[in-house]
Computed example of a mutant assay.
Amino acid sequence: MTDATGATRSLLASWAYALRTTNPPPGPVERLDAVTRWIVVSRAAVLPMTLVAGLVAALLAIGEPGMDWRWLVLALVGITLAHLANNLMNDLYDTRSGSDSADYPRALYAPHPILSGLVSLRALVLASVLVNVADLAILVVLTVARGWPVVAFALAGFALSVAYTAPPVRLKKRGLGEPDVLVVWGPLMVCGTYYCAVGHLSWPVLLASVPYGLLCVAVLMGKHTDKAPYDEPLGIRTVPVLLGQVRARNATLGLMVAFYLLVGLAVLLGAMPWPALLVLLAIPRLVKVWPYFRRPPPDEPPEGFPVWPLWYAALAWLHTRQAGALLVLGLAVGAILRTVAR
Rank of each mutant, 00 (worst) to 15 (best):
L242C: 06
L242P: 00
V246F: 04
V246G: 03
R247Y: 04
R247N: 01
A248D: 09
A248W: 04
N250M: 08
A251Y: 13
A251C: 12
A251I: 14
A251R: 11
A251V: 14
T252I: 03
T252M: 01
T252C: 05
G254K: 09
G254S: 10
L255W: 02
M256F: 07
M256A: 06
M256W: 07
V257C: 03
A258G: 11
A258C: 12
F259W: 13
F259D: 15
F259V: 15
Y260N: 06
Y260H: 13
Y260A: 07
Y260R: 08
L261F: 13
L262P: 06
G264N: 06
L265P: 09
A266N: 03
A266Q: 02
A266T: 10
A266H: 03
V267G: 11
L269Q: 15
G270C: 03
A271H: 07
A271W: 08
A271Y: 08
P273S: 09
P275D: 00
P275S: 00
A276R: 04
A276Q: 02
A276C: 06
L277A: 11
L277F: 10
L277S: 09
L278G: 04
L278S: 04
L278N: 07
L280D: 02
L280C: 08
L281H: 05
A282C: 07
A282S: 14
A282R: 09
A282M: 13
I283M: 14
I283F: 15
P284A: 03
R285W: 08
R285I: 13
L286F: 08
V287H: 10
K288H: 14
W290R: 10
W290T: 05
W290A: 01
P291V: 02
Y292C: 02
R294Q: 05
R294H: 02
R295W: 06
R295M: 10
R295S: 08
P297V: 06
P298V: 04
D299G: 14
E300M: 10
E300F: 12
E300P: 10
P301S: 11
P302R: 04
P302Q: 03
E303P: 00
G304R: 01
G304M: 05
F305L: 04
F305D: 07
V307Y: 05
V307T: 15
V307L: 11
V307G: 05
